[in-house]
């Protein structure tokens, strides 16, 4: 076992790992941060997306030891300092961008990464950016709408509800 230290959601943390310990396992089992979900084993579904050094990555497809020392942000670190929902989170609630909630952490993390790179994306850019995040509940309508709303753009033209 090797002790791996990272900065997760602004706090320095460490946990014991094997070579094969995935970042998702490090977060979930090592640190008890179960907001990061695992929905597939082929790096497709995106439920496990977190930010490593500011970039969205699939935490189920990275070894914990390969990102030792990194700055990691998870869904647990997305709320405002006062505990209120962050901009992307709030937009997802306002526009019903989630149903069962299982893909939601990955969706929020990918959406936040998109808006960091591209603050005013078009609908097509949002859809393209979310290609690696599968949602089975929403048909994506309200997710795309929520991301556009979170970017501060006018969503009045999008079909109601």
């Amino acid at each position: 076992m090797t002790k791996v230290t990272m900065v997760v959601n602004g706090k320095s943390v460490s946990a014991e790992t094997e070579g094969r310990t995935l970042l998702s396992g490090y977060l979930r089992e090592g640190l008890g941060l179960t907001g990061t979900h695992v929905g597939c084993d082929t790096s497709q579904c995106g439920a496990c997306v977190v930010h490593v050094n500011g970039k969205a990555v699939k935490s189920c497809t990275i070894f914990a030891q390969d990102v030792a020392g990194a700055e990691v942000r998870t869904i647990e670190g997305m709320a405002n300092a006062d505990g209120s929902l962050g901009v992307v989170q709030q937009a997802f609630q306002d526009h019903h961008g989630l149903q069962c909630g299982f893909c939601t952490p990955g969706m929020v993390m990918s959406s936040a990464a998109l808006l960091a790179e591209n603050p005013k994306p078009t609908e097509a850019e949002v859809r393209h950016y979310l290609e690696g995040n599968i949602c089975r509940c929403t048909g994506y309508h309200n997710i795309v709408k929520a991301v556009l709303a979170a970017s501060g753009q006018d969503i009045a033209a999008i079909p109601a509800e």
């Binding site: 790096s43 995106g46 997306v49 490593v52 970039k55 969205a56 990555v57 699939k58 497809t61 990275i62 990918s110 990464a113 998109l114 950016y129 290609e131 690696g132 995040n133």
Partner: peptide, 8 residues
């Protein structure tokens, strides 16, 4: 792939 794959 997708953005997360492209970052890695």
């Amino acid at each position: 792939g997708d953005p997360a794959v492209r970052n890695r």
